[in-house]
Amino acid sequence: MQLTSRYRFVASHRLHTPALSAEQNAKLYGKCNNPYGHGHDYVLDLTVEGPLDPSGQIVNREALDALVKTQVLRHVDHRDLNSEVAELAGQVTTTENLALAIEGMLKSQWTLPARLVRVRIAETERNTFELESKP
C-alpha cells in the first residue's frame, strides 16, 4: 500500500545560471530570471510505500510529519532558495532541482520503516514536478 501526505511551504527564488550570459539567462528563464527574485506557494506531496504495521498503518503520521518538518520545511519555508538552502547551493533553483534536493534531505535522515517512493511538487497549480524515488 501507499500513503501520500501533503505539506506546504512558501519560498522565493530566481532562475539563473552563471554558465550563461545575462542575455542568455534572460532569454532562457524569462520572468523567472528577474534579478529581484519572486516566490511561490509550493505544495509538496510525499508518497511512502510499505506493508501495514501491527497498528494498521504504513507509517506513523507524527513520525513522518516530524521528519518532514525537521529535514525539509524548517529549511525551505519562508526562505530564499538561492541563498539560504545548503542543498541547493551552486544549483539553479528549478523545481526539478528542488525535488531532488528535498529527496536528499529526507533520505539522509530516513529511519522510517516505510519506503519513500515519490516526491511531487506543485510550483503553481499549473506546474507540477514528480520524482520517482529509487531505493
Binding site: 501507499q2 500513503l3 501520500t4 501526505s5 501533503r6 505539506y7 510505500e49 504504513i58 503520521r61
Partner: peptide, 12 residues
C-alpha cells in the same frame, strides 16, 4: 483529508 490519502491496489 484533502492532505492525506492511501492507495490500495494490485500493484501496491
Amino acid at each position: 483529508t484533502a492532505d492525506l490519502y492511501v492507495d490500495c491496489g494490485n500493484s501496491n
